[in-house]
């Protein structure tokens, strides 16, 4: 089926694609490179900077100055916690909508997605006050709840589209085999949907990891994830390029690596299963 492409054409495409790829990746590459330079060298002109000696001192300073480990751990707890909680709520809901559809199922899905359209600022004030009055400001538990709720519609949607691909007859077979609803979901549906659940999880972890509205508004230090940790560099420390780069590299590295390793599942997840 595939046609023979001329080698020249392939070479031209190769050059163009690599060039664009590098341009797009450049800001990240530059940040990583800069993080291994001293402050003095980091603000030099690009070529001078590149030829300056490499050092790990910025990482040491960032570590000394702030508690990276705490913020990293907060990010892990927030993104994993909210994702698992959302899955726990979403799997039964998606099961119901995919396998026992009613006349209003589609409206219900649309409504769920529409809650995602509600701008966070619309509820910023009461959320802030509620959090303040309940003593939830700067607490991980409160933020896990919020992140769960803001991503829940997307999780339900994604699981719904995955579940739709599973033939209902198999679930009926399990019912005939004497499975209770719990067994049906636990032993039949969930294992069959593992790829879908995995990509849902991945996307949700990334969204939660990078969420930068509520995490900035509702945390200050103790429960602050990496988004807040980086925002604290916005001024005036922003001018310390090497330290900023080191901090940035540490903030994005975990998710970058996770994302690269799970690219395939992620693309499937990103498209809501709408693009095959």
């Amino acid at each position: 089926m595939a046609r023979k492409t001329t080698q020249t054409r392939k070479a031209v495409v190769t050059i163009a694609a690599w060039l664009i790829g590098i341009v797009i990746f450049f800001p990240i590459l530059w940040t990583i490179l800069m993080s291994f330079k001293s402050e003095g060298d980091a603000i030099k002109a690009p070529l001078a900077m590149l030829s300056s000696p490499w050092t790990l001192e910025s990482y040491g300073e960032v570590q000394a100055r702030s508690n990276y480990a705490l913020h990293f751990w907060n990010s892990v707890v927030l993104s994993l916690g909210s994702t698992l909680l959302a899955l726990l709520i979403a799997i039964p809901a998606a099961w119901a909508m995919a396998f026992v559809p009613g006349k209003r199922t589609k409206d219900l899905l649309m409504w769920m997605l529409s809650t995602k359209m509600m701008p966070a600022v619309g509820v910023l004030v009461p959320m802030y006050l509620m959090f303040r009055d309940l003593g939830l400001l700067d607490s991980r538990i409160g933020l896990v709840g919020v992140l769960t709720l803001i991503n829940l519609p997307i999780v339900i949607w994604m699981l719904y589209t995955y579940f739709k691909e599973i033939p209902g007859e198999i679930l009926e077979a399990s019912r005939m085999d004497g499975a209770s609803l719990r067994s049906e979901i636990l032993y039949v549906l969930t294992p069959m949907a593992v790829p879908g659940i995995a990509s849902t999880m991945l996307l949700n972890i990334i969204l939660a990891w990078n969420e930068a509205f509520w995490t900035l508004q509702l945390t200050t230090s103790k429960a602050a994830p990496l988004t807040q940790f980086i925002a604290s560099y916005s001024s005036p420390e922003g001018l310390f390029y090497a330290k900023l780069s080191a901090a940035s590299t540490m903030a994005i590295a975990p998710i970058l690596i996770l994302g690269w390793f799970s690219q395939k599942q992620l693309v499937r997840g990103l498209t809501f299963g709408a693009v095959k």
């Binding site: 797009i24 930068a212 994005i252 998710i255």
Partner: peptide, 12 residues
């Protein structure tokens, strides 16, 4: 390379 920016948090 092309997908990488998607993983970078907005503050960074």
């Amino acid at each position: 390379l092309v997908i990488a920016p998607f993983f970078v948090m907005p503050t960074v």
